[in-house]
């Protein structure tokens, strides 16, 4: 078991990056790693449902994030600045997130054994 942080920083519309990152998070958690997910920058948009996904020609894969809880992902963190920048309130998010400052995230990262960035 390792402490692994997965940093998400891309918009949900930026190719397969976010979607495959979600799969990676679930795969890591499924084999009992202690996974911390961190939403930064445009990735906070992943926390909102993709409306009119059919019109965009992509699948709305955002509901799969609700599985993080079932997979026992240890912590789900959203960057306070990013939420503010994109004007997203924690209560609008699909899943429960812990809002943290850059400084707190930095401290959290220092505790990890592995870090993957998507």
């Amino acid at each position: 078991m390792k402490k692994i942080a997965v940093i998400l920083s891309h918009s949900p519309f930026d190719g397969a990056i976010s979607r495959e990152a979600h799969d990676m998070i679930m795969a890591l958690a499924a084999v009992e790693h202690q996974v911390t997910v961190i939403y930064q920058d445009a990735a906070v948009l992943q926390l909102l449902p993709i409306r009119r996904s059919a019109a965009l020609g992509c699948k709305d894969y955002t509901p799969a994030q609700k599985l993080f809880e079932l997979y026992e992902v240890a912590a789900v963190v959203a960057d306070a600045c990013a939420l503010q920048l994109y004007q997203i309130l924690p209560e609008q998010c699909l899943i429960t997130v812990t809002v943290m400052s850059d400084q707190a995230i930095q401290a959290l990262l220092a505790q990890q054994q592995h870090i993957l960035r998507f």
Binding site: M26, K59, Y61, A64, L70, Y71
Partner: peptide, 13 residues
């Protein structure tokens, strides 16, 4: 609910 087909591990859980 989740818009994904469950693989065996998550199905069991």
């Amino acid at each position: 609910e989740f818009r994904t087909s469950p693989a065996i591990r998550v199905l069991v859980k």
